[in-house]
Design a protein around this nucleic acid. Structure first.
Lengths: 127, 127
DNA sequence: CGTTTGTTCTATACTATATAGAACAATTCT
DNA sequence: AGAATTGTTCTATATAGTATAGAACAAACG
């Protein structure tokens, strides 16, 4: 599995797992309709507890990125054909706003930020 | 003061304060060389504890956005004339990457993300 | 000189994170 | 049908993070 967890970071490992799974989907390594590993097997692979993986899965479900079928497994949601929903756009806006403000404070111009974003998108899709 | 804290959110109030102060600087409400209120007076204004404000200030110092002069006060750093530093750029990249990945997973294209970013920059600077 | 400043210390309370193990019932596979 | 696997639920424990409270200190400020 394409997942690297670093317990020594000050980001909780369940949150790291959430981000890594999202990035795996973004880069096309996992796609709509695919199943995620069971919480037990992924926990064993990553050397962490079953409940920690379960927490990460439920966070992904809360974000409407996967759906969890009780006693069966977790499946990645397919994209709606009519683009991002209003709720999702609002959530992304709330998440990204403080970081953009920080970038401005550190001296970045609009064009610098747009360039950085474009570079990061390429990085994600190309990794 | 241009600060709104919402204790019922699941974001720690010290972290909310950090973000709000960064946004106040980004929008030009506070600028390089300006002093921040003392931890005691801002804590009284916001109805929170002195130590919580102190924690937020030290987080801003860790980000190199302010400097704290012991027994004196906190001053907002001025921008270096030669643009954002490598360290800062790397930090912004690490912070923004998981959110961009989430945006991709939710169906946003590169142009959608760049448009959103541009809109948010206008929102921040205009508020 | 008196006030204000950030700092440091002890203390308490609550929440969040992470692990552990067991048991359950539904689903899945053979 | 039977066995294995699944997510769920429960109790328990340990550690770290968040938030408040109050007191005391020495340096800086007016």
């Amino acid at each position: 599995m394409f997942i690297q967890i670093e317990p020594e970071l000050d980001i909780p490992i369940y949150a790291q797992l959430v981000s890594q799974l999202i990035e795996a989907i973004a880069r096309g390594n996992l796609t709509g309709g695919d199943s995620l590993p069971s919480v037990r097997s992924l926990a064993a692979d990553l050397g962490m507890n079953m409940h920690t993986v379960n927490k990460a899965y439920h966070e992904l479900e809360r974000k409407e990125i996967i759906r969890i079928v009780p006693k069966s497994g977790a499946i990645i949601n397919s994209l709606p054909q009519d683009g991002i929903s209003g709720n999702h756009l609002e959530r992304i806006s709330k998440e990204i706003k403080p970081i953009i403000a920080e970038a401005i404070v550190l001296g970045m111009e609009t064009k610098d930020i747009n360039k950085l974003v474009t570079t990061i998108i390429s990085t994600i899709k190309g990794e």
